[in-house]
Structure formats: structure tokens, C-alpha cells
Design a binder for these strands. Structure first.
Lengths: 163, 163
DNA sequence: GCAAGATAGTTTGGCATCAAATTATATAGT
DNA sequence: ACTATATAATTTGATGCCAAACTATCTTGC
């Protein structure tokens, strides 16, 4: 059902790791953490490249997408849902506000907090990002193939136990 | 064979995500990239905490361990084996040299390069780190359980295709 | 009501990472 | 031999992330 994938490296890539290729398995072959790190880095870089071509920031996608799900939300809620520390969101939210993709309204019930809401423009941007994210995830789906269920369940367990 | 694991969160953790918990699945449930990122972050933070308690840097482990496998090695080789950009290694190697854990010797055949070698002290440090890394990976092994093989193969495919 | 502690958001500091630019040296082609 | 290109390592600049410190505000317990 999914397109076939060629899992081969280019000649260039093969050449660049020649001679060391054999060492990797010897030491880290069984190291789950190693493979997890390298794979996640590769996935992130691929997505960052795709968004970068559209002059967007990869971190925007999760924020804008979560915001499509509710009328408004506080930064703390966003942080929990996105799985990132609150402090990480500060600059992204500023960016998004500066570009008019979100609006921040003071919360009348709590002067410390504010609510974040997508603007029309923000909604449009989310849709553009969604196309990129969809393509990225389609690729990941193809790669995981029939192992997707197991793979996701392991990731979920890791997050739960270590988180 | 492996110890039983309790996959439950503390009351505190449950409470802190109350009300948002249901939103996560709704949007990102199927997003492989999202779960991959969150799980890797959790795994890295756990390892960083363990090394931090011993006043060590997490990045040292991979370098020192690779170096146990050969008499000496160039930074470029290390970079390929560790799966990180060369520029990332520069400061780590300086750290390690400053602490006397590695020695850097000029390469007589190539003035641009040098070879890196573990000192006795470096070997001892590697052994200390190995204990921590082993414990970390035992935990990961317990979590992945019988799915380890499939999990690792998916990670390897991701790295190969996206890398 | 008021002091003590909790919470929301930001700021600061630190680390890890990549990519592009830089410098020095090797290698290849002519 | 000399020039042009490639390579090794570093430097610089950017991003993303967390954790701890900080400020402002809210809530709780007396």
C-alpha cells in the first residue's frame, strides 16, 4: 500500500563512513539510547530542513497545531501538551505574536496569566505547516511500516517510565 | 527474567497534566516524530541526570568508549562513529584533554590532523561511566522488553533513510 | 486581613547540536 | 613546480532544550 523505499545510502555517504562503519555495531549496536538519539536527530533535521525551505521554524508547528484544537490556551497548557518546558516556549510565543500568527489576551481572572489564540493568519500558517508535517510523517510511516504499532508503544512506554 | 516495572506516574505528575492529557492523543497520537522526540528527550535527560550526579558530562561517555576500542583515533573518525558533527566534538575533546583523560598527539603524516588516545585516567573514567551507561541501558532494555529487536530495527531504518 | 506558600510567566545560564565560514595543510592536475 | 581543489580541525552563529532564579500574582491558613 505504501510506496517502496530504497534503504540504500548514496555512494558518497558510504564512502564517508568507510572504515568506521564496522566499529559502530561493535560498541553501540545494542545501545538503545544511542540509536534512539541518532534516529531522533535525523528525523528532526529532516523536518527542520523541510520547514526551513518554507522559511518557517520547526517549533512553530506543534504550537500552532495544538492551538487549532481550542479557542484559546495558556502557555502552561501548551507546554504540557507539547512536552516541553514552559521556558522553552517563551521566545517561540513572542515570535508568533510578532508575526501576527497568535494573539495574547490578558486573563481577567488571573493577572499572571494570559490566553493565546490563533489569528486567521496563524490558522493559514498552520495549514501550510501541516502539509509539510504530513509529508514528513508519511515518510516516517513508510519507514516504520508494519512495525509502527510496536514502535509507538515502545516510545510511549519510554516516555512514561523515564518522563 | 527482567525486573517488573511499574508504569504508573506519581500523583503529582498525573495532576499536573490533568485536563490536557486527553488532548495529546487527539492531535499527536499518530505522529511518530512527536513520540520519537519526547521519548528521546526523556531518555537523554535520564542519562544526563545520572552522569550529572557523578559530576560527569553525558557527551563524554560515547567518546571515551569509542576510544577504548582502538589505540588512537582522529577527531573526524570519532565524529563519524559517534554520529555527531565534527564541530560538536571540539569542545568535548578540549575538556577531556584538560582533565587529562585523553592525550592528543600530532600526526607526523598529516599536520592538519592529530590522534587522540585514552590516558590511564581516561580509561578509569570510561569504566566509571560504563557503570552508569549500563544501568541506563538496562532500564531501557526492561522498558522495551521483547520489542527490543523490532524497536532497534526501526530506529536503524530511520537513521539510514533520513540520515 | 495578612503572612506564607504556590503558581504563571520570563530571564538567565548552561549544554548539545548542526551548518557555514575560516585556516592550515594535502593532494591532484596540468 | 604551481595552481586548484579537497580535507582536518576550529570558530562563529544559530536553534532547541532544561533547570534554577526571579517577578508578579494568587491562594491558603491562620
Amino acid at each position: 500500500m505504501t510506496a517502496k523505499l530504497s534503504i540504500e545510502r548514496t555512494d558518497d555517504a558510504q564512502a564517508s563512513s568507510k572504515g568506521t562503519q564496522d566499529l559502530i555495531p561493535a560498541i553501540f549496536q545494542d545501545r538503545i539510547g544511542y540509536h534512539l538519539r541518532v534516529a531522533q536527530e535525523a528525523s528532526f533535521q529532516a523536518f527542520a530542513k523541510a520547514t526551513g525551505r518554507a522559511d518557517l521554524k520547526p517549533g512553530w508547528y506543534a504550537l500552532l497545531t495544538v492551538l487549532t484544537q481550542r479557542d484559546s490556551m495558556t502557555p502552561s497548557e501548551l507546554s504540557r501538551i507539547c512536552g516541553r518546558d514552559r521556558s522553552t516556549l517563551t521566545s517561540s510565543l513572542k515570535d508568533l505574536a510578532d508575526r501576527g500568527l497568535i494573539e495574547r489576551h490578558p486573563n481577567p481572572d488571573d493577572q499572571r496569566s494570559y490566553s493565546v489564540r490563533l489569528t486567521e493568519e496563524g490558522r493559514g500558517m498552520q495549514e501550510r505547516l501541516q502539509v509539510i508535517a504530513d509529508a514528513h510523517d508519511r515518510l516516517l510511516e513508510e519507514i516504520t511500516g508494519e512495525d509502527k504499532e510496536v514502535f509507538l508503544s515502545v516510545l510511549a512506554r519510554l516516555t512514561t517510565v523515564l518522563g
